[in-house]
Structures are given as C-alpha cells and as structure tokens.
C-alpha cells in the first residue's frame, strides 16, 4: 500500500532532517523541506537503504525529483 509506505518513510525523513512535525506528501520536493539539500540527501539515501534493507543504483539516484519518486523506487525494490 502506497499510503502505508509513505507512513513508514515519514520517520526516516523526520529523523534525517531533524523535523519531528514534518508531514510528507508525494508531491513534496527539496524546496518544500528545510534542510533537504544535496549533503543531507546522501544521509537520507543511506538511512533509507539501512531502514528498508535495500541498495540503490547510481542510475536510480538521478531519478529522485520528489517524495513520490522515492516511494516508487522503494516499491520497485519490493518494499
């Protein structure tokens, strides 16, 4: 379930960006989340890999424009 996945991803974002009240939606981009810049993005990628026990490929990292793209990517890995 897509909405379940959004719920599971939310604490990873909240923890990574130190934003306990962050409410995610699929259309959100880096512009909408304070602190989501390229350096924090690397930590986010690592946190998502560790949390969901997956590994991203280089080509996949270039496809992440918004939160929804991340969910699609995680779904493609069976999460």
């Amino acid at each position: 379930m897509r909405s379940d996945l959004l719920t599971r991803v939310t604490p990873v974002f909240r923890n990574n960006f130190n934003a306990p009240d962050l409410v995610l939606n699929e259309t959100m981009t880096a512009k909408d989340v304070e602190g989501w810049d390229s350096f924090a993005h690397i930590n986010l990628i690592m946190a998502l890999e560790d949390t969901f026990n997956v590994r991203f490929e280089t080509s996949e990292l270039g496809q992440i424009g918004c939160v929804g793209d991340l969910l699609t990517l995680l779904e493609s890995k069976g999460v």
Partner: peptide
C-alpha cells in the same frame, strides 16, 4: 531533474 542539487 534534480531539485535537491538545484537547491544547493
């Protein structure tokens, strides 16, 4: 394509 990088 990469709004995260554009922000930086």
């Amino acid at each position: 394509t990469n709004p995260v990088h554009a922000k930086k």
